[in-house]
């Protein structure tokens, strides 16, 4: 089973009476999530707001989000996959031993209660964060949770959604998916898109030293990526487009200051539920937008003679403007 059974945040706001946050701390990292979409809002179907909704938090420590939760489940570090797999078995009344449950740090009574509540909900939504996707197991953890959400639909309506962070990371995935069929980890080195995470993904390409130049738009890998990747960015010509001077700017050969998106540059940002939202800049900037800079670079490249011998050009994608 694959894919993501999901919905928009509007549907969550209107209908979700059972919310699970797994490996995330929205009280600190998405501070308006509770109030705008998930637990505080009153709606046509949930007229009493918070009283009509149940919130469960699954995490390895008691974060600030635990105060807002009805049920807090403290799972042992690195045992999320085991817990999700146990829940997948328990919803189908398959046998699970006490030893298997004990590995997760929780008890059978707690899990029985959780399964009962999940099945009894009218509309359940599981949000998962980096506590699930960036620990051991990574995409296997996410896939297990998405499968649990899909399988819960045999009993009631259930969906899952990743808690995306930072400005418009969802937009990058959505646009790459729309343009190439793949969300990330794509190479165009044969003239057509190929996808292979671990091989063509940014960190891996940098750590192996596969690329001999880097062009970075609105990101700061110099302050966020593993040190071996940062070391390679220092070795090669790195070009940065950013409204601010960042750690990456300092290790780059060229920094071009651009107007900040949404403040002085127009565009479209994608919400975590993949809804596109137009950005209307209230201010003007003396700096060009990222789009203007990229277009000028494209024009300058197009004006140069093609670098490969005639007759050896790979099949090129038609540029979408």
């Amino acid at each position: 089973m694959g894919g993501k059974v999901t919905c928009t945040l509007g549907e969550v706001k209107q209908r979700a009476d059972f919310i699970v946050y797994w490996g995330g701390n929205p009280a600190e990292c998405h501070p308006r999530h509770f109030t705008k979409y998930t637990i505080m809002q009153k709606s046509k179907f949930l007229p009493r707001g918070r009283k009509d909704r149940t919130m469960v938090l699954v995490d390895i420590r008691e974060t600030k989000s635990a105060k807002a939760a009805d049920i807090f489940l403290q799972v042992k570090p690195g045992k999320d996959f085991e817990l999700i797999t146990i829940l997948r078995a328990m919803i189908k009344d398959q046998h699970v031993t006490d030893e298997q449950i004990a590995v997760t740090g929780l008890s059978r009574e707690v899990l029985d209660d959780l399964v009962g509540r999940m099945k009894g909900a009218k509309f359940g939504c599981m949000f998962f964060g980096m506590g699930l996707s960036m620990t051991r197991g990574k995409h296997m953890n996410s896939a297990a949770l998405l499968t649990l959400a899909a399988e819960m639909n045999a009993f009631t309506k259930f969906v899952a959604m990743p808690m995306r962070g930072h400005g418009n990371v969802t937009g990058a995935d959505v646009i790459m998916r729309w343009q190439t069929g793949f969300p990330f980890g794509i190479t165009f080195n044969r003239g057509y898109p190929r996808y292979n995470p671990g091989e063509f993904s940014t960190v891996d390409v940098l750590v192996r030293g596969d690329c001999d130049a880097a062009f970075i738009i609105g990101a700061d890998p110099g302050a966020t990526m593993p040190q071996p990747a940062i070391e390679h960015l220092k070795r090669i010509p790195t070009i940065v487009l950013d409204p601010h001077v960042t750690h990456t700017s300092r290790l780059s050969r060229v920094h071009i200051t651009t107007a900040p998106q949404g403040i002085a540059a127009p565009g479209t940002a994608y919400r975590m539920d993949e809804i596109p939202l137009p950005l209307k800049p209230p201010l003007k900037s003396p700096y060009p937008t990222d789009e203007q800079v990229v277009r000028r670079i494209n024009e300058a490249i197009a004006a140069k003679p093609f670098w490969m011998p005639e007759g050896s050009q790979p099949q090129m994608l038609t540029a979408q403007v």
């Binding site: 420590r61 990574k138 671990g198 091989e199 960190v203 891996d204 750590v207 593993p226 071996p228």
Partner: peptide
């Protein structure tokens, strides 16, 4: 038995480059 540190340049120094074939470096655990 656990330590928590906010993400930042110092935690980059502790991070290995292997992504286990996922494209995502391990930043927890």
């Amino acid at each position: 038995g656990m330590i928590f540190i906010p993400y930042g340049p110092p935690t980059c120094l502790l991070m290995g480059g292997d992504t286990d074939g996922t494209g995502m470096p391990t930043s927890k655990g």
